[in-house]
Amino acid sequence: MTADAAKLYPRHRDRISGSEDYVVRHFARQNGITPAQVHQLIKKYGSSRAELVAAAKELRTSLRPEVPKTKLASGRRAGRLSGGGDARNGLKTR
């Protein structure tokens, strides 16, 4: 009978290993934070991926500056294409 590799070497995808640099870099890139912040979160919350993702999301929103959203008279938000732009291709309409 052959050995089942999945049972012999289970992968713990629900955990983040702080000692593996490539895992930390990948997690940081996925969640928009720095590897140093990942290490801090691991120390604070442990290695559970679900908890770290939630903590990273909270960290990102707490670090983001509050920017007031301006609205046009029509009620739409002012944006890059608000000055008569065509939303389909980004070109000005006349």
Rank of each mutant, 00 (worst) to 15 (best):
R77T: 14
H39C: 13
G46K: 09
K7V: 09
S74L: 15
D14M: 09
K69Y: 04
S19L: 08
A28I: 01
G18S: 06
T93H: 04
L41F: 03
I33K: 01
Y45C: 07
N31Y: 01
K71W: 08
Q40K: 08
N89Q: 08
V23C: 08
V24K: 05
K92N: 10
K7S: 15
T93I: 14
R25F: 10
R25M: 13
R64W: 14
R60S: 12
G18C: 02
Y45P: 00
V38N: 00
V53H: 05
A6T: 06
E66A: 12
A28L: 02
A50I: 02
A87G: 14
I33A: 00
E66R: 07
A73Y: 10
L52H: 04
Y22N: 11
P35A: 04
K57M: 08
K69C: 05
V53Y: 05
R64L: 15
A28F: 01
V24L: 08
A5Y: 10
E51D: 04
K69P: 01
P65F: 07
K44N: 13
Y9H: 07
A54L: 04
G46A: 15
A54M: 05
S47E: 07
I42S: 01
Q37T: 06
D21A: 12
G75A: 06
L91T: 07
R60M: 14
V23Y: 06
T70Q: 11
K44F: 14
A3F: 11
P65I: 08
D21Q: 13
T34Y: 07
A78C: 12
L59P: 02
L91D: 01
Q30P: 00
S62H: 04
Y45M: 09
L72R: 12
F27H: 00
K43P: 03
I33H: 00
G90F: 00
E58K: 11
T2R: 07
K71H: 12
A6F: 03
Y22T: 10
K43D: 15
Y9Q: 03
Y22E: 13
G83H: 10
Q30F: 03
T93C: 01
